[in-house]
């Protein structure tokens, strides 16, 4: 560890204990996804762990899709938010295993997606649901289940494109993986 970092640890002037970790979690509640700015990184379930390591706050992040262009942006946003909150040298590391699943999106995140006009993932992810893809998706605008898939992919890799046959509005569906 470089000498400078030894001096500038995140514990300076702090207890470095559990309260700080809870505070860090609350800071990350405010870090929003760049593509869907109504859900936070906590809602999405991509922050897997926050702990202390060698005097630094250590945040473990599990990326959503392998090729998601927002991954690096999100990591930078997390680092910036923690620095602004007073953690001078937080470390952010990626963890691939276990792989991210939409099952990790919390209730608040699901409600926020829906209010934003994106249908949240239906049911739990399993190999069967991925292969068959037969699940009724509720229209986020009118609540009808009379909807149809227009395309396997929507505006981003994590979404597919649907249309409501009742209110006729097209909408994005957050795919279940």
């Amino acid at each position: 560890m470089p000498a400078g970092e030894l001096i500038a640890t995140d514990q300076q002037g702090r207890s470095g204990g559990e309260a700080d970790i809870q505070y860090a979690y609350s800071v990350l509640e405010e870090v929003m996804d760049p593509e869907v700015p109504v859900v936070s990184v906590m809602d999405l379930g991509i922050v897997r762990d926050i702990s202390w390591a060698d005097g630094h706050l250590f945040v473990v992040v599990t990326p959503t899709y392998s090729g998601c262009p927002a991954t690096e942006y999100i990591e930078t946003s997390i680092r910036d938010a923690l620095q602004n909150a007073g953690f001078s040298h937080p470390k952010v590391a990626q963890r691939l295993d276990p792989a991210w699943t939409t099952d990790w999106i919390n209730e608040q995140g699901r409600n926020r997606l829906k209010a934003y006009g994106i249908a949240p993932p239906v049911g739990s992810s399993s190999k069967r649901s991925l292969l068959s893809g037969i699940t009724p998706v509720e229209c986020p605008n009118c609540g009808s289940e009379d909807t149809e898939q227009l395309s396997e992919f929507g505006s981003t890799a994590c979404k597919s494109l649907y249309r409501c046959k009742f209110c006729l509005e097209p909408f994005d569906y957050f795919k279940c993986i």
Binding site: Y65, S66, L96, D97, P98, A99, W100, T101, S125, K127, L130, L131, G133, E152, A157, K175, I177
Partner: peptide
């Protein structure tokens, strides 16, 4: 494990 989730969708 991670890639398989995506590839399953591709195969479908």
């Amino acid at each position: 494990t991670k890639s398989l989730k995506e590839v399953t969708y591709h195969l479908r």
